[in-house]
Amino acid sequence: MSCPHTPEIIADHCDADVPAEVLQRHRVHLDTCWDCRQELLSLRGVPGELLRWQSIPLPDWDRSGMVKSTSRRKTLASRSYQWPTIGQWLPLVASLLLAVAVMTQTRLTIGPQGWSVSFGVQSAVLSAQQLDEYLTAHANTSQTETREWVEAALQTHGQTTADSIYQWMTYIEQQRALDVQRMDAGFEQLMNRDFQTVDSVRQLASYVLYQEAP
């Protein structure tokens, strides 16, 4: 290629959405550029060669297999909803905790007596056991709130079907996932404020993830 315009001209020649004024500019260039004309003549047939491909139908495969294996939906005989486990709420709790940690200038200290978390100017210290208790309490509160909410809804709609319960629960789960995403985004912004805090928070995050692992 000896002309710098060749790639764009060849590419635009194969693009149905190129604006008319760009094509006009290319035409003017082609009038005076032998290299581009030659390349266009040489390569214009290549896409057509490829498009001689004959579409082949798929062999038979199990399209609903993923639905059966992924779905938490119960059969009619066994449609009692199982309450989410603590592990399902932990990401949200972790995000909340990390956000609080950043806001309150949390520091993590590791010493001979184990580790501790301090807030601001060493005014308060949180031990590993307290953190555990906090996480458990928070997860329990979340579960209780959701359970109460669903039960209230059930009483209001006496004729509720198992289908709609499933839809509510899916909705709630999606909302939780969205909350976590929002918290993550906010957390990313906060992270940029203070490197030392970030470092503490990262260690805290590793701790929480470690706790979350089965």
Partner: peptide
Amino acid sequence: VNTAKTRFYTALKNLK
């Protein structure tokens, strides 16, 4: 976008 166009052009030359 320009890199995509150059890459496509190179691919067409190779195919040719």
